[in-house]
Design a protein around this nucleic acid. Structure first.
Length: 477
RNA sequence: CGGGGUGUAGCACAGCUGGCAGCGCGCCAAGUUUGGGACUUGGAGGUCAUCGGUUCAAAUCCGGUCACCCCGACCA
């Protein structure tokens, strides 16, 4: 018998590490801080990718691909940018058996190469907006890594756009943030909060950074996607200029936005329970696992035609189905697929064959989630169940999040909230220095200034100043 | 980068007062099982991280090196 997972309540971090390997999402690699994405984990990424790629194209973006290597000098052109990334760069100094004249940096992000290309491509206001995305791997030599959440090499998409005006760039930045929120909420069943980052948490070289923040089941925050309005900083550093309608040479306004395989970590930690993963149906590699139940050859030959027919019908309806034909007991398979988080299980046994029925069980509920359905009704019932599972995961995560966000009006209250676990929500008008001090003293960072309460003003819980904006503080991954 | 820990079969580990390389899970075969983690019997599988030292003899003792993991500070 295989042993159970470490319960979340006992050691969340241990639970997470175990589930990543037990659910067959990833394997350890020979390289420090890097993981092997196993097929089951990679397919979640493929589904995230399909969702986003479709939305990017619908909003007028095109995919391109830029080189993995970036001349070291490029990084140095935007001062804040180098400073932000230099400690975590991997650099190639020898290639082809020779010491390179100029070292090549393995990209930590591609603003610089893409900025350089944009400066060539853009001449006129007629070339704008330029809307490019790339699906790529990037490397950041982090000191401390965790599977999916922070790996030395990770997969992501990075969008890079150039616009004629600040307002166009700002609209693009917010549009892409909305698409990330769509993926999170409609795809991953993650109730994220859209917000703006503080000066301290802003992307190196950006004018403004927006984020979607999600709460994990240990109440820690996870930044799950970011969108930056880069202002004219990169345009100036890379000489991205266009000739306006008035025949004047102007700098472009650029944006960049990215979402990474970290999202997989968010899904694991926001929905998983002590039985294993609970995957959101729309991103799950397998939406329905079909398990035949039989005792001997005779029963097997009765049950399989029904399984085959139902899975064929489900596939025709666009449902991702897997039939588990392994020679294991049903009980073993139930537990195994619960570990892997498959949203719906279909069982067909001899009794069901006799009654014209099938069993459907949903992963998001306990043993109560089991029901008998007429075989003719399986496709419709599965469709409903997949939607119901999505809705329930979202509702549970939302309820959990809201129960763990506490309004604070004083620093003492805020410290109390952070200490007991959860996010503190209160008016904030502090300086960068104040924010650093709060971080030092409490371990919590300013996660974001939520967009939905951007207009509200009140007395800062820390400085007592008027005119504070609503801010969320919490410990983060 | 600081602190802690671990390297022994695919995985998780025991063996560490030197003396034939082990257990559990997994894997292979046969049989009995199968509606919530089956059982029996028989098998396969090892550069004990690495380099050096002590010894008749080293997984075990001594020294060096490397790697990985965990906890913090830095970060998507």
């Amino acid at each position: 018998m295989t042993t159970k997972l470490t319960p979340q309540s006992e050691d969340f971090s241990k639970w997470y590490n175990e589930i990543v390997y037990r659910a067959d999402l990833a394997a350890q690699s020979p390289v420090r801080g890097c993981i092997i994405f196993k097929p089951y984990g990679y397919e979640i990424w493929e589904n995230i990718r399909a969702f986003l790629d479709r939305r990017f194209k619908e909003t007028g973006h095109q995919n391109a691909y830029f080189p993995l290597f970036i001349p070291e000098s490029y990084l140095k052109r935007e001062a804040e940018h180098v400073e932000g990334f230099s400690p975590e760069l991997a650099v190639v100094t020898v290639a082809g058996g020779q010491v390179l004249e100029e070292p090549l940096v393995v990209r930590p992000t591609s603003e610089t190469v893409i900025g350089e290309a944009f400066s060539q491509w853009i001449q006129s206001y007629r070339d704008l907006p330029l809307l490019i995305n790339q699906w790529a791997n990037v490397v950041r030599w982090e000191l401390r890594t965790r599977p999916f959440l922070r790996t030395a090499e990770f997969l992501w998409q990075e969008g890079h756009t150039a616009h004629a005006t600040h307002d166009d760039a700002e609209a693009e930045t917010l549009q892409m943030l909305d698409i990330y929120a769509e993926l999170a909420i409609d795809g991953a069943a993650l109730p994220v909060i859209k917000g703006q980052k503080s000066n301290i948490e802003r992307f190196a070289g950006a004018l403004r950074t927006y984020t979607i923040e999600a709460m994990m089941r240990d109440t820690k925050a996870l930044q799950s996607g970011t969108s930056h309005n880069l202002g004219q900083n990169f345009a100036k550093a890379f000489d991205i200029k266009y000739l306006s309608r008035n025949n004047e040479l102007e700098y472009c306004w650029t944006t960049s936005w990215g979402l990474s395989t970290r999202m997989i970590g968010a899904i694991i930690m926001a929905h998983g329970d002590d039985m294993g993963l609970r995957l959101p149906p729309r991103l799950a590699p397998i939406q329905v696992v079909a398990i035949p139940v039989y005792r001997d050859e005779g029963e097997h030959s009765q049950v399989m035609p029904v399984i085959d027919r139902l899975t064929r019908e489900l596939r025709a309806a666009g449902v991702r189905v897997h039939v588990d034909n392994r020679e294991e007991t049903p009980g073993f398979k139930f537990n195994d697929w619960e570990m892997r988080g498959v949203p719906v299980r279909l069982e067909v046994g001899p009794k069901d064959v006799a009654n014209g029925k099938a069993v459907l069980a949903r992963r998001d509920m306990g043993k109560e989630g089991k029901q008998f359905v007429a075989q003719e009704g399986v496709v419709a019932a599965v469709r409903d169940l997949l939607d119901a599972v999505h809705a329930n995961l979202l509702a549970q995560a939302t309820a959990f999040r809201d129960a763990n966000i506490h309004t604070v009006t004083s620093y003492d209250q805020m410290k109390q909230v952070i200490e007991t676990g959860g996010w503190a929500r209160g008016y904030w008008a502090g300086s960068d220095e104040d924010e650093r001090r709060v971080k030092e003293e409490t371990g919590a960072t300013l996660r974001c200034l939520p967009l939905e309460s951007a207009q509200e003003r009140g007395t800062c819980f820390y400085t007592g100043q008027q005119g504070g904006r609503i801010a969320l503080f919490g410990k983060a991954y």
